[in-house]
Design a protein around this nucleic acid. Structure first.
Lengths: 130, 130
DNA sequence: TATCATAATGTTATAATATAACGTTTGTTA
DNA sequence: TAACAAACGTTATATTATAACATTATGATA
């Protein structure tokens, strides 16, 4: 079984950069930042990103094609993610709201579909940009 | 002011294809389907898609980079969209649930952000694929 | 109806995002 | 230590999306 905690070298490098970043990072901007460390190809970045997502260490912001570190204890390895996204600056904030999470996790579509996972993106202007 | 109802030729062509489709369509697959009608370049598709989204006639499924026709009267020109997405087949269904919509529209993040819009994607297996 | 502004068009080129496919290396564990 | 799985490195290419520029249609109004 894959060990939940141990990160490979490339995974650790990529995660460090994402964790240090103030906002969401794009794959190619990560790539440019790690070329000094000997990572040269997009494939290497995308592979690390995929694994980090699987492990729940990071999330993809779908509307921005960008990645943020997970800050939520509620998201249960990315089964229940919610973000607030500022349409003016680059700010993205992960929303940890147990009530919201519970409400959505128990939501079931009439048409017979049982959901395994959801991703919610809110858009607006953050405090600064308002 | 832009007239909410009148569609240009290209917009109409693109909308027709999306409305006739059984599932979400990707930009380039739309392009291949309309080359017989004299639309030759991606730019033409993307421009039509952008306008149709603005008008609320279609929505983008962010996790799939694909587009579906709007079927909801609740979504208020894409201010409040929710979809159920089958992870096995290509099925995407727009969720019209007034309660859900109201709940999320009135949700406000603690950190002082007032939301203008949200997009929610649920993932699971549809009836057929289950 | 002439004119002006706006929206939409057509086209070429290119940017940005992401994956396929292959062989090699490393790490785990039986 | 042999065998397997995971991660790596690399080249090539596929997919998604936008920039930039010239042209043509459309609609409002003077």
């Amino acid at each position: 079984m894959a060990q939940a905690q141990t990160l490979s070298r490339n995974q650790q490098i990529v995660l460090n950069i994402i964790e240090k970043a103030k906002g969401p990072l794009k794959a190619y901007s990560i790539l440019f930042n790690v070329q000094k460390k000997g990572i040269n190809a997009p494939q290497q970045i995308y592979r690390a990103l995929d694994k980090l997502i699987e492990m729940g260490k990071i999330h993809k912001i779908e509307s921005k094609n960008a990645f943020v570190a997970c800050k939520s204890s509620d998201c249960e390895i990315s089964k229940a993610t919610a973000f607030s996204i500022c349409e003016s600056c680059e700010m993205v904030d992960e929303i940890s709201d147990a009530k919201l999470s519970k409400y959505l996790s128990s939501f079931n579509h009439r048409k017979g579909m049982k959901f395994k996972r959801f991703n919610l993106e809110f858009f607006g202007l953050c405090k600064k940009c308002k």
